[in-house]
Design a binder for these strands. Structure first.
Lengths: 256, 256
DNA sequence: TTGGTTCCGTGCGGTAACACACATTACACT
DNA sequence: AGTGTAATGTGTGTTACCGCACGGAACCAA
């Protein structure tokens, strides 16, 4: 069983690794280490040092800030579209946040030193990482905006959709308690809003499992924040033909 | 008058320009263009193209997201500690936000092309810009957290302190209406909380002017978010001795 | 089948911030 | 000095979310 299962893993399930030019991917692929990422594992603690950068494939990570009171709030999520460890190359080496596994699964990791070596060549790897960082900034910004102006119900929809986009199926393994801690609200608030969504026929759930039934419906209930994030990720990380040359001033993209 | 006033302006009033190695600063200083930044001017509109990057000296800029409803929320502020235009080198070229002058004053601008040329040398300029970007990410993250968990009063204190840190005096020229639109709350909410702070002897204000009387007191009223942001900026942008070499794995800093 | 534990549902009172309406005041300008 | 406008103060009712308490149900393991 172990062998068959392992054989189904592939670094290219991570989108960032997948869009790297072949020669760069080949140069690091032997150093990519497949690791399980069990639910709840803390990959990074505020102020700590990362020994590896992580590329999730089937898992989803969550970047949190943990307040002095112990309350938490999600800053951003990281799935197979992204990676954990940007502070490695941005220069600070640490961040005041925590990274925790939100959905158990697998991913690949790469030693910090190797990532830095490749980044410092100032080639496609660097440009890809910076683009991803830019997309991450949009995600964080939109979290800030959403926290300010939107209802718990809208935020739950946004969060479900973003999470769904990172998963192969339409079911997430997730207690209401956990969702609540992600959004930084009460568990009862999730019970209530999830109940509304279920009555509206958009989702169904049972103890620890949420299934999205009507994805299009969810998109109608959610706020604009979801689409802003989604489109920005698409804009920044799909047109990868330009990774091979330094950014220069050029004509306006037709992507928006 | 014009000449005397102009003579008091200096690009080195901007901290990022000030910590650049002398040879790099010298190579761009002739291209730095002093410009007035009047209150309310929109330097950048969502999805637009920046022709210049901006280094505020006596002005303060605000990065906003403008919602479909027209409501706004501040994502981050930019004063003489920073610069506007990171999307230029991060790769996306545009962002889904707006940049507006929050406190009138002056700043310097540099043509996008020149900034890119220097950035693409992958030397100290690049490393400085990436560090600043990392600090900005912390600021945005903390905005998200603060929006989620803290009262308007705490947020107002945080915002006042962050703004004060970017100004030479202890007085800000700012209507309650404007403050409200920054924080994304009602104007009446600011009237009320500012009234509380005034009664507590921390600030005083009159039509369009807020004066901080007891800075230490404000720091007690504010939430942890202020210090997180402040310390992170200090950590990332004060130790500039390492700008001359690529980041490598090294001993843990003793700064936190 | 039977506990036991974790998760979910619900009710109730409290409160911070909202939306709207309108009174009042400070300042700028002539 | 007077006047108009922009800014600030205040009141009223509403709502979304919170904190707490506890009942009930689903799943697990023996």
């Amino acid at each position: 069983m172990g062998i068959i299962k392992t054989a189904s893993h592939n670094p290219l399930q991570n989108h960032l690794l997948a869009v790297l030019p072949a020669e760069i991917f080949d140069s690091i692929s032997a150093q990519l280490e497949l690791i399980p990422m069990p639910l709840g594992e803390i990959l990074y603690e505020s102020g700590g040092q990362l020994q590896h950068v992580y590329f999730p494939t089937t898992s989803i990570l969550s970047l949190h800030y943990v307040m002095e009171s112990g309350a938490t709030a999600e800053i951003a999520g990281v799935g197979n579209e992204g990676m954990l460890g940007i502070s490695i190359f941005m220069g600070g080496n640490t961040t005041p946040s925590r990274a925790i596994v939100q959905t158990g699964g697998h991913g690949y990791r790469l030693k910090t030193r190797l990532m830095l070596e490749e980044f410092n060549r100032c080639g496609p790897m660097m440009r890809l990482m910076l683009r991803y960082t830019q997309a991450l900034i949009t995600q964080i910004s939109q979290t800030a905006v959403c926290n300010r102006h939107h209802s718990v119900e809208q935020q739950l929809c946004r969060w479900l959709l973003l999470t769904l986009d990172r998963l192969p199926s339409n079911e997430l393994t997730m207690t209401q308690e956990l969702v609540a801690s992600m959004l930084g609200v009460r568990r009862e608030g999730i019970t209530e809003t999830a109940g509304n969504l279920q009555r509206a026929g958009l989702i169904s759930y049972r103890r620890g499992h949420i299934t999205v039934i009507d994805r299009a419906g969810l998109e109608k209930y959610t706020c604009e924040c979801y689409n802003v994030v989604k489109q920005e990720f698409h804009r920044l990380l799909s047109d990868t033909g330009t990774l091979n040359r330094p950014a220069v001033k050029h004509k306006i993209h037709s992507t928006l």
